[in-house]
Design a binder for these strands. Structure first.
Ligand SMILES: Nc1ncnc2c1ncn2[C@@H]1O[C@H](COP(=O)(O)OP(=O)(O)OP(=O)(O)O)[C@@H](O)[C@H]1O
Length: 786
DNA sequence: CCATCCTGAATTTTT
DNA sequence: TTCAGGATGG
């Protein structure tokens, strides 16, 4: 028995059909947790072993870099397991560590290295490093292969500058953020500035088209692309250059796309071009070629970024045989859920049925009923956090085989993480927040990357301006303006002025010397970019720019932090060089930083509670999930409540959240929430009412935790649907030294002393991280923990 | 040229 | 509440 058939035993018959699919189009549709991603992963392995497909002919698109990494690891493991049997006649996990490593690295060289597996953005940036110089846009703009990738804040600053400085418009009327958003949407629909103007033939439309046009000019002048270009440029390039398309069409014989419901029109076009060579359907050739997509329309949650789940619904017509479900050979449905306990699954299924824009699906449970879903109503966001962290503590304590990494807290907006973080810190529980401020978005990191970008891509004026006087070198606004103006007058890049000593001497005034020194440093490194490894370039930048020195001089905690972060960046470069699958160049590293998301830092198996938005949680799973902030206006978000389609997307988001849970699900909301510093009353989310009541518990069926001897449980655990009176002092309890207690604002602690007796008791409690406090249990709300 | 204080806007979601 | 960007004064 070969291992392929062995691994097929990890699949149900429908999955197996998907996995064994060889040529032609195939759509796998199924609800959450039905093993779509697993099917896709196994199919890659199966193509290679059973059908002898060369890994370099496979293109696998995932939604996040993390998903790509995990998929590659999974495939690596599958092959290592297979080779362990064939070469050692032994199960992989029984081999000594040394042989495991040897096998893994062998598999890496043989299979993984050549596999093109990543997000649309990272895969296409790789393609562009090869071929972008063959591209020209409709205005003759062109790019070189050392292009920079501008992140969202670069893009927004550019738009702002164009609106206010170049076109002298009011940024009140043309808010740079929303203009940038509009441009981004246009690009994601494949519209050029001219196309956009045709679509919006009014004043505003004309202005935005004008900004868009200038924006593209500026990008090109900087030899830079934004995120949207990474998709759009390849599509245009493929459309205008048959040879280039031919090369990639020929290379990628088998294309696989995960989370297909969240692709947009340009991404779809790209897949379509690669798979069909842009030919009419009647000319398509499927010999040794396939398109395999998996998705779930009910989990489409990225329409704000122009994702369009009708692309998934249309797959059968676009690529498939278009036959109905009973006769089709180009679609497989998976109907068993392997992730969640039945209660959780039922709640999710019930909720999503409230959507009208959907096709009904079957999703059956394979796991037991599980515990009831627990619903909690808190007084405010602090009490909500308190509830969640208490629960986490007690579950962790009760179950020896549960660790912090099994918990996740999911919310609608990043801003909600704060109270949970505070409470986790207080309790000394390790946690990771995904999203919010990304590592590569920190000021010090962006500064240092600014140097690297200016070195890799001299045309990158944005980066040059960022670092020319960071740290301060006495190059002021006036000087910079002089230099920039000169560049503009001459129609050359800023760098061409900077790098010419004479020009700088003429224009630079008193700071000419500083400018020349700066330019020499950058120039020297530009010469070395081809010869030196990226880490060495970074090291030189750090030594010569004075950046770290300047931080040392500041000497405060914040500066210390920054220095450490810069050190982290150095490690990241080193790691990149070591793993350097493909493109070990500085430009390659810079691309990876621009495209990295915060999720990528969350390593499997690290024992820390995860906090993230519902959007970030897509595709993940956790034994215990807390879905928090279920309030009207927050979730569903008020910006989505007036439009039925948007409301349905919010509901899908809720569906995604619920279906992340494997064993336990806790839902919570607050009656009052701080917003911009003021307290606002909050109403429970309609989504709570859309769940089947009988599945929700508001108090524990088996009284495990939190029961006071005095009978009544703490106020918040009463009939949760009624309003609760929760500021009730603690009931009469016999306190003892050593008791573990929970305080409303200080969190968990342990009693170290008892003072007085009878009615006049006060207790000393030691709170981790807060020290010892003396508290009157009749005033404070104190709960005894089992 | 640079540090500090003050004002007003911001929170939907992200590759 | 937090933070970026502008005004102000050294
Ligand atoms: N045939 C199977 N037998 C047992 N467990 C399975 C099987 N297929 C998948 N699983 C498990 O079920 C869980 C969900 O699988 P997977 O992530 O592939 O589902 P999915 O459909 O991609 O989910 P989502 O829609 O949420 O992205 C995983 O833990 C996976 O290991």
């Amino acid at each position: 028995m070969t291992t392929t058939t062995d691994s097929l035993s990890h699949l149900n018959p429908h999955q197996r059909r998907a996995v064994e699919h060889f040529c032609g189009p195939l759509l796998v549709v199924a609800g959450a947790g039905s093993g779509k991603t697993r099917a896709l992963t196994y199919r890659i392995a199966n193509l290679i072993t059973e059908h002898k497909v060369n890994p370099e002919n496979i293109l696998a698109v995932t939604f996040t870099n993390k998903a790509a990494r995990e998929m590659k690891e999974r495939i690596q493991k599958l092959f290592a397991e297979q080779m362990a049997l064939s070469e050692y006649g032994e199960r992989y996990d029984l081999l000594p560590e040394y042989d495991q490593v040897k096998l893994r690295s062998k598999v890496y060289k043989l299979v993984i290295k050549d596999l093109w597996c990543g997000t649309f953005h990272s895969l296409l940036s790789r393609i562009l490093r090869f071929d972008i110089e063959k591209y020209q846009d409709e205005n003759g703009r062109a790019w070189k292969k050392n292009f920079s990738i501008f992140d969202e804040s670069d893009a927004q600053s550019l738009v702002k500058e164009i609106v206010t400085k170049q076109l002298n418009l009011s940024d009140k009327k043309f808010n740079p953020r929303s203009v940038r958003y509009t441009i981004s949407n246009a690009k994601n629909q494949g519209l050029s500035p001219k196309d956009y103007e045709k679509e919006e033939p009014n004043y505003k439309g004309r202005v935005i088209a004008e900004v868009y046009n200038c924006y593209q000019d500026r990008l090109a002048a900087n030899n830079a692309l934004d995120f949207d270009d990474l998709i759009l440029v390849p599509v245009r390039l493929f459309q205008q250059n048959e040879q280039v398309l031919g090369y990639w069409h020929n290379k990628f014989r088998h294309i696989l796309v995960d989370e297909y419901q969240d692709t947009n029109r340009t991404q779809y076009q790209l897949i379509s071009l690669l798979a069909t060579y842009g030919e009419q359907k009647s000319h398509w050739k499927w010999q040794n070629r396939s398109v395999f997509v998996v998705g779930d329309a009910d989990q489409s949650i990225y329409s704000f970024r122009m994702a369009d789940f009708t692309i998934l619904l249309d797959f059968q017509q676009d690529f498939g045989d278009g036959l109905d479900d009973d006769d089709t050979r180009s679609m497989v449905k998976l109907e068993e859920n392997y992730r969640s306990c039945e209660n959780i699954l039922q709640a999710a299924n019930h909720l999503i049925e409230n959507n009208t824009q959907r096709i009904d699906k079957v999703l059956k449970a394979t796991r037991g009923e599980g515990e009831q879903i627990f619903y909690f109503k808190a007084d405010d966001e602090v009490a909500e956090a308190n509830f969640v962290i208490n629960k986490i503590r007690s579950l962790e304590k009760e179950n020896p085989d549960i660790n912090w990494g099994n918990f996740s807290i999911l919310y609608r907006t990043n801003a909600q993480s704060r109270p949970f973080e505070d409470m986790l810190v207080r309790n000394g529980i390790p946690y990771t927040v995904v999203g919010g401020l990304k590592f590569y978005d920190r000021k010090e990191i962006k500064d240092v990357l600014g140097y690297l970008r200016a070195i890799a891509n001299p045309a990158d004026t944005v980066s040059l301006l960022r670092v020319i006087n960071t740290p301060r070198r006495g190059i002021g606004k006036a000087t910079i303006e002089n230099l920039t103006n000169a560049a503009q007058e001459l129609g050359v890049s800023l760098w061409e002025i900077l790098s010419d000593e004479t020009s700088v001497n003429t224009l630079g005034g008193r700071s000419a010397k500083s400018v020349n020194n700066f330019a020499k440093m950058i120039g020297r490194l530009q010469q070395e970019v081809e010869n030196l490894p990226a880490s060495e370039i970074l090291q030189t930048v750090l030594d010569e720019s004075g950046y770290v020195q300047d931080l040392h001089k500041q000497g405060n905690d914040e500066a210390e932090d920054r220095i450490r972060n810069v050190g982290e960046l150095y490690n990241a470069v080193r790691q990149y060089e070591e793993e350097a699958e493909q493109d070990a160049s500085l430009a390659g590293f810079l691309a990876s930083t621009a495209l990295s998301s915060d999720l990528d830092n969350v390593k499997e198996g690290q024992s820390a509670v995860s906090l993230m938005t519902l959007h970030s949680s897509k595709g993940l799973e956790f034994p215990v999930v807390f879905l928090v902030g279920l309030e009207q206006g927050l979730f569903p978000n008020y910006r989505s409540m007036n439009d039925p389609a948007s409301l349905e997307e919010e509901r899908r988001l809720c569906y995604v959240g619920i279906t992340r849970a494997q064993e336990r699900l806790f839902l919570s909301h607050a009656r009052e929430r701080r917003l911009y510093g003021t307290r606002e009353p909050a109403v429970r989310s309609q989504f709570l009412d859309e769940l089947p009541r009988e599945l929700l518990a508001t108090q524990y069926p088996r009284s495990v935790t939190y029961t006071n001897t005095g009978g009544r449980t703490s106020a918040s655990y009463n009939n949760g649907f009624e309003s609760t009176s929760s500021s009730k002092p603690t009931a009469n309890v016999n306190w003892q030294v050593g008791d573990k207690v929970m305080h409303k604002s200080f969190g968990a602690g342990e009693i170290t002393h008892i003072f007085g007796g009878g009615n006049k008791v006060s207790v000393a409690i030691k709170f981790p991280g807060l020290g010892q406090k003396i508290i009157d249990p009749r005033v404070a709300q104190l709960q005894k923990m089992e």
